[in-house]
Design a protein around this nucleic acid. Structure first.
Length: 512
RNA sequence: GCGCCCGUAGCUCAGCGGACAGAGCGACGGCCUUCUAAGCCGUGGGUCGGAGGUUCGAAUCCUCCCGGGCGCACCA
């Protein structure tokens, strides 16, 4: 049994219709288990009334073993009611796939690098960088689940102007002076000043620790200073010119908003700009290491989209291999008050503070549960609340409840699951709804992956938990007539809940 | 001025071509001798920013307008 029962049914119907068929779940239960609009779509091309096409499809659909009832509705929808056997097969397919259910959707697996966070080590990770991390890490998780080979890299500037200001601020603190006007301040500067030597490695160490705590692990770290040294080896492949004493890249001719300075003029110091490192870095990624390079950047960097595409083209790479994923900003709300954060001001909200306050699970949940293109407000008070009000715990609770049922079940019954998962003659609505929800998962994950939109997962997890809680409330699993089937159902639900949470980076506890 | 993103219930946001638009919070009312009540059920609440257009069908696609966020450094 293939793992995706809906696609199997779609394929059978497509065969009957002679065209692609997409099934959807009608909002109104009286419109069947599934419905399709093919007849409406085909009407124009076939020069036939949609209802006529729908009638024919209904006839053919009734010939399929999975279909219990089919009828034409409205302007030409085909509504389908499915046999319990279909639900049984769907469930068996999920159990057979186990924790791989919904995964492996990549048509051609690639080597993908996701470069994320990449905040310069001038201070602790703040909340907007945390969104970068949460979002980027979830995209990486999705890609890996789809079958790609994924590496996470952190890139940072260890030598530029900002770093000099940072070092100068720490130096000033060591001398007991105020930070320069354009410098950095805050308790962490004083802490770093207490130890002698370069504060950058220690700052990086702290950042890594925060991110590990946030369940983001980096495979590698890249330094701007090392990359920019290699600019000369790529210069022959680039179109450059001198103006006002600086070396410019003709990126404007390749789709960038304008040309960019790569090496500063002598009076500005004569050093390479960060764009020099960008070029080397991209050439290195696409030339040797990866099929695809993904950059996760804040919305204020949207201009870099054209920049990266331009240098890819100039270097002779397909710009389609470069993706710049942007996310909008985060505001924290506490007691109804919005916290504005700026990096140089002292009153920033750090990732560690957020985790201390709401926990890793809630922090990750709230940072990825919205569209990355949406500016978000996180209600810290709600996120911190361990109650029914908080969707994170609502979902985790469903998982824990199932774990509890499984603990109480006979071990022998649980181990024999798949073979005894015969569905009862009559399925309750709650059972049908739950299986249909589980059946949505592969499509949902594949879409979330393609669209780089992990926020679909927490939203799905809420719906799945919802379906489960309703089922749980109405039906007894242990000791019921349909115990083997329901144990199978509940096991599959637990697997999918756990996967949904895992893709978001949230724990799936067995007890709460 | 040019460019990117967003305007959906009192608030925070899902939905992004289909049949009467959803969730959480907030407000109000029910349900625990039952596998975890961190649960379930119910009530109230929306001209989907506005105007045109495409389509059998638009919150969803296109154009324009209004409102908000963010960019347009020899900073990163």
């Amino acid at each position: 049994m293939p793992a995706d029962a809906v696609r199997v049914l779609e394929a059978a119907l497509a065969d009957a219709a002679g065209a692609e068929v997409a099934l959807e779940r009608p909002g109104d239960p009286s419109h069947g288990d599934y419905a399709t609009n093919v007849a409406l779509r085909l009407a124009g091309a076939r020069r036939q009334p949609p209802r006529t096409i729908a009638e024919e499809l209904v006839e053919k659909a009734l010939g399929l073993p999975a279909v219990e009832r089919a009828e034409v509705a409205g302007p030409g929808f085909v509504n389908l009611w499915l046999e319990p056997a279909w639900y049984g097969d769907a469930l068996a397919g999920i159990l057979a796939a186990g924790e791989h259910y919904g995964g492996g959707s990549a048509a051609t697996p690639e080597r993908v690098q996701v470069e994320l966070v990449s905040a310069n080590p001038t201070g602790p990770i703040v909340v907007s960088a945390a969104r970068n991390g949460a979002y980027g890490d979830c995209v990486a998780r999705l890609l890996a689940f789809a079958g790609h080979e994924v590496e996470r890299e952190y890139y940072y500037n260890d030598a530029g102007t900002q770093m000099e200001r940072f070092r100068a601020s720490v130096e000033a603190a060591r001398r007991g002076e105020e930070a320069p006007d354009d410098g950095y301040r805050g308790a962490y500067v004083a802490e770093l000043a207490a130890d002698p030597g370069d504060p950058v490695p220690e700052m990086l160490h702290r950042i890594e620790a925060s991110l590990e705590r946030f369940r983001i692990h980096f495979d590698s770290w890249a330094l701007q200073s090392e990359l920019e040294l290699r600019l000369p080896e790529f210069l022959p492949r680039l179109e450059t010119y001198e103006r006002d004493g600086a070396l410019w890249l003709r990126s404007g001719a390749y789709g960038d908003d304008k040309d960019q300075v790569v090496i500063r003029s002598a009076e500005k110091g004569g050093l390479p700009t960060y764009r020099a490192a960008d070029i080397v870095y991209l050439a290195d990624k696409l030339g040797r290491r990866f099929d695809r390079a993904i950059y996760v950047l804040g919305a204020d960097h949207h201009g870099t989209r054209n920049w990266y595409a331009a240098i890819a083209r100039m270097l002779g790479f397909d710009p389609g291999r470069v993706e710049v994923l942007l996310y909008q900003f985060v505001h924290l709300v506490r007691g109804g008050e919005t916290t504005k954060m700026s990096k140089r001001a002292g009153d920033l909200v750090t990732l560690d503070e957020l985790i201390d306050e709401v926990g890793v699970d809630a922090a990750r949940w709230y940072l990825v549960n919205r569209d990355h293109d949406q500016t978000i407000e996180i209600d810290v008070d709600l996120a911190a609340e361990k109650s029914r009000k908080n969707p994170v715990y609502y979902v985790q609770y469903a998982h824990a409840r199932i774990a509890s049922i499984l603990r109480n079940a006979e071990a022998s019954t649980v181990s024999a699951l798949s073979s005894e998962a015969e569905p009862p003659a009559e399925l309750a609505v709650e059972e049908r709804d739950l299986i249909k929800r589980l059946a949505e998962f592969p499509t949902l994950v594949a879409e979330a992956t393609e669209r780089r939109a992990p926020h679909a997962l927490p939203n799905y997890a809420i719906q799945l938990a919802d379906d489960f809680h309703r089922f749980y409330h109405e039906h007894k699993v242990l000791g019921s007539e349909a115990e083997p089937f329901r144990l199978a159902l509940v096991t599959a639900t637990q697997t999918v809940l756990a996967r949904s949470l895992d893709l978001v980076g949230v724990d799936a506890p067995d007890r709460m």
